[in-house]
C-alpha cells in the first residue's frame, strides 16, 4: 500500500500547472486534495510519473460569484465551501449535498474540482454539478473550453478531459429564489459512496430530477408541470428507464426501488420549500 515513485512539482500559479500538464500529458496528474487520487496511488491503481500540486497556487483557491453562477477553482476544498455562510442562500442544494461527501476528515482536504475529475458515478459533487447546469472549464496551456456537466461525464471515472488538459474551475448555476430543493441518499455506512442519491429542484414551470449511483454518469430528467399526485408514476417510469445493474452492493431491483423511495423524499422536500 505504498505509491509508485513520481516527480513532484509544486506550483505557485495555475499557469505553471497548465504548462506542466500540457507538456507531460498522460504521465502527469494534478494533485489537489488527494482524497481520491492518493488512495488510488496507494493501491497502485494509478501510477503517474509526475504529480502537479496546485494547492500552493493562490489563484487556484478562488471562489467567484459571477453571471448567476458560483465559480469554484481547482484548489477550493470541500470544507471551505461548506463553511461559506453565503452558500446556504446562494445555492441551497449544494449546501444540502456537501455534508454527504465523505467524512469531516476527508472534506477538510478534498476539493470540489478533484471530485469532478475523479468522476465516480456515486459521488455527490458530480451529481450536484449535473443537476445545477454546471460547467467544467478545461485548460490546455492558455486555451480554455467550457463543457456542460452532462457532456463532461462520459462513463464510470471517464470524462471529456484530454490528458494534456486540466480542470481550472467548475461553475454551479445559482438556485433561483422560489425554487425548492431536496436531496436524499442511501449508503451502507455514513460517508460511504451512495448506492443511490437523488436531487430535486422544483420551480413553478419545471421539475428537475437528478439520480446518481445507478447509471455510469449522473442522470438528469426535466418534467414540465409535474403535479405531486403524478410523482410516483413519473418516478416509476424513470426507475425503469435507467440502466440499473446488480453488483456486490445492491441488486438492480433494489436500486430501482431506492430511486422510487428516495426520489419521492427528494421531491417532497423540494416541493415543501418551493414558492
Amino acid at each position: 500500500m505504498k505509491p509508485a515513485a513520481f516527480d513532484y512539482v509544486r506550483c505557485e500559479t495555475l499557469d505553471e500547472a497548465c504548462e506542466v500538464i500540457a507538456q507531460t500529458g498522460d504521465d502527469a496528474r494534478i494533485l489537489a486534495g488527494g482524497q481520491s487520487l492518493v488512495a488510488m496511488m496507494n493501491m497502485r491503481l494509478a501510477t503517474p510519473a509526475v504529480l502537479v500540486d496546485v494547492m500552493p497556487a493562490p489563484d487556484a483557491r478562488k471562489v467567484a460569484a459571477e453571471n448567476g453562477t458560483l465559480k469554484i477553482f481547482a484548489a477550493v476544498r470541500q470544507a471551505s465551501l461548506l463553511d461559506d455562510p453565503d452558500l446556504t442562500w446562494r445555492n441551497p442544494l449544494l449546501a444540502r449535498m456537501l455534508p454527504w461527501v465523505g467524512h469531516p476528515q476527508t472534506r477538510a482536504r478534498g476539493t470540489i474540482c478533484g471530485s469532478v475529475a475523479h468522476a465516480d458515478p456515486s459521488a455527490e459533487i458530480p451529481l450536484a454539478l449535473a443537476a445545477l447546469d454546471g460547467k467544467v472549464i478545461l485548460r490546455r496551456g492558455r486555451k480554455r473550453r467550457s463543457v456542460k456537466a452532462t457532456d463532461f461525464f462520459l462513463g464510470m471515472m471517464l470524462t471529456d478531459k484530454a490528458d494534456d488538459e486540466m480542470i481550472e474551475a467548475v461553475t454551479f448555476a445559482d438556485v433561483q429564489q422560489g425554487t425548492g430543493t431536496g436531496f436524499a441518499e442511501f449508503g451502507r455506512r455514513k460517508g460511504d459512496f451512495a448506492i443511490v442519491a437523488c436531487a430535486a429542484l422544483v420551480s413553478p414551470m419545471r421539475v428537475r430530477f437528478a439520480v446518481g449511483g445507478v447509471n455510469d454518469t449522473p442522470f438528469v430528467r426535466d418534467w414540465d408541470n409535474l403535479s405531486p399526485q403524478d410523482d410516483a408514476e413519473a418516478l416509476n417510469a424513470l426507475a425503469w428507464s435507467l440502466d440499473a445493474r446488480g453488483d456486490l452492493h445492491a441488486t438492480a431491483r433494489y436500486r430501482r426501488d431506492l430511486v422510487r423511495h428516495l426520489g419521492a423524499q427528494a421531491l417532497k422536500e423540494a416541493r415543501s420549500c418551493a414558492v
Binding site: Y8, G34, Q35, V38, A39, N42, L51, A79, P104, Q105, T106, A108, R109
Partner: peptide, 10 residues
C-alpha cells in the same frame, strides 16, 4: 488546524 488522513498526504 484541520483533521486529516496522514496516509492520503505526501
Amino acid at each position: 488546524g484541520a483533521m486529516a488522513r496522514s496516509c492520503l498526504t505526501f
